[in-house]
Amino acid sequence: MIRVIVPFTPGGGTDMVGRALIDDMSRELGQPMIIDNKPGAGTVIGSDMVAKAPPDGYTLLLTTSALAINDSLVKKLPYDTQKNFTGVGLICSGPNVLVTHPGSPYKTVQDVIQAAKANPGKLNYGSSGNGSAVHLAGELFKNLAKIDLTHVPYRGAGPAYNDLMGGQIDLVFGTAGGVAKLVDGGKMRAIAVTSAKRTPAYEGVPTIGETVPGYEAEVWYALFAPAGTPPEALNRLNAALRKAAEAPAYRARLVNEGLNVAVNSPQDMTRFLRAEEARWRKVVVEGNVSVD
Rank of each mutant, 00 (worst) to 15 (best):
L61N: 10
E246R: 10
A252M: 07
R274G: 11
R274P: 01
G156P: 05
V183G: 06
T63G: 09
R198G: 13
E210Q: 14
R279L: 04
K146F: 03
R271C: 04
P266H: 13
P39A: 15
F8Y: 13
G167Y: 08
F8I: 03
N288H: 15
G258V: 12
D268C: 06
V285L: 10
V152N: 00
S290F: 08
E139I: 05
L77C: 09
A217G: 06
A115R: 08
A68F: 02
D292H: 07
W220N: 12
E216K: 11
G13W: 01
P7C: 03
L149P: 00
G94E: 02
I208D: 00
I35V: 13
G42M: 11
V4R: 00
V291A: 08
Q114N: 04
P95W: 02
N37I: 05
Y161K: 03
E246C: 05
R19T: 11
G103E: 11
P266E: 01
A176R: 01
L234Q: 03
G13K: 02
A192T: 02
E203T: 04
E277T: 10
V50P: 05
V112E: 00
A180D: 06
N130V: 11
I208F: 01
V284D: 02
K117E: 14
D184N: 11
V261K: 10
G214A: 15
E277S: 02
